[in-house]
Simulated assay, not measured.
Amino acid sequence: MNVSACMSTPAVSVAATATIGEAARRMGVHGVGCLAVTEGGALRGIVTDRDIAVRAVAPGLDRDAPVREVMTTPAVTVGVGDDIHAAYRTFRNAGVRRLPVLDGQRVVGMLTVDDLLMDVFRRVADLLGPIAWSVLEEPPGPRDEIGTRAQGGGKSPTASRGS
């Protein structure tokens, strides 16, 4: 499976000259924690909510400063046609939580650790689905000697009342 099957699209981007305040607003409007920072259509870096908190807010940087002052560069990326397992390795090796997805030089999406987690959940559901249905058709529990379900572990409902 390719990265394109799991990535979030479109990638939300901001110009390198945009202000930190503008980048933060854009994250809020789009409900994302990361923006691709572009210049002339080319990826220059990424800015995350953590970059803004640690590199801008904490040191008291002016919200009107350009986002390029707090962005992470160079950005670790993956290609749109890369195998998903290569993306897993990239996440592990780079120690990042978000990867811009490129088609040539153009940013076409963003792949996050959450996207991969959803992929894992789908795979587990696909694997366990038939098992779950078989359990629903025949509930688990002990069987007696002839293969029928034992009721209450072999005791009658009144046996535990202390007759």
Rank of each mutant, 00 (worst) to 15 (best):
V37R: 08
A86Y: 07
G31I: 02
A58H: 02
I46S: 04
S163I: 07
R55N: 03
A150K: 11
D119I: 10
W133H: 03
A94N: 11
I20H: 08
T90K: 06
A15Q: 13
L136H: 14
E22R: 12
P142H: 13
V135Y: 13
R25M: 10
M71K: 00
A18N: 15
V124K: 05
V37W: 09
R50Y: 06
T38I: 15
A132W: 04
S163M: 09
M71W: 02
R89E: 15
T158Y: 15
G162C: 08
S13Q: 13
S13I: 02
G147I: 02
C6E: 12
R89L: 15
V80N: 07
G141A: 14
R98M: 08
D62T: 03
C6S: 12
G104V: 13
T73M: 02
V76W: 06
G41T: 03
D82A: 15
E39G: 02
G33W: 14
G79A: 13
G147L: 04
T48R: 06
R63K: 03
G79C: 06
T17W: 11
R143F: 06
I52V: 08
A16Q: 08
V47I: 10
R123H: 14
M71S: 00
S163W: 10
R89H: 12
A132K: 03
I84K: 09
R26Q: 15
G41P: 02
R106W: 00
L43W: 00
T48S: 14
L61W: 04
V78Q: 10
W133Y: 09
P100H: 08
G141D: 15
D115E: 09
P139M: 09
R97C: 08
D51Y: 01
G129M: 08
T158A: 12
I52Y: 01
I131D: 05
L111Q: 05
W133C: 01
G153I: 04
A75Y: 14
R123I: 04
D49V: 11
D51K: 12
V70M: 05
V80I: 13
E145P: 06
R122N: 08
W133T: 06
S13Y: 06
A18G: 12
G153A: 09
Q105S: 14
G95T: 10
G31L: 00
A56F: 00
V3Y: 10
P130Q: 03
A86G: 01
G28W: 03
V113W: 03
L61G: 01
V107T: 14
G21R: 07
A150D: 10
T158P: 00
I84P: 03
C34Y: 06
V37G: 04
S163V: 07
V47N: 03
V96G: 03
A53K: 04
Y88N: 07
I146N: 07
M7V: 04
V78K: 12
V70H: 01
G33F: 14
S13W: 07
V12E: 11
E39P: 00
E69R: 07
P66C: 05
D49Q: 14
L111P: 02
I20F: 09
N93S: 09
I146Y: 08
L35R: 04
V70P: 02
A11K: 04
G40Y: 02
G45C: 02
V57A: 11
G129K: 09
T90G: 03
C34N: 05
M110S: 11
A56R: 01
V70F: 00
I20W: 13
V32P: 05
E22I: 10
G162S: 11
V135N: 01
I84M: 10
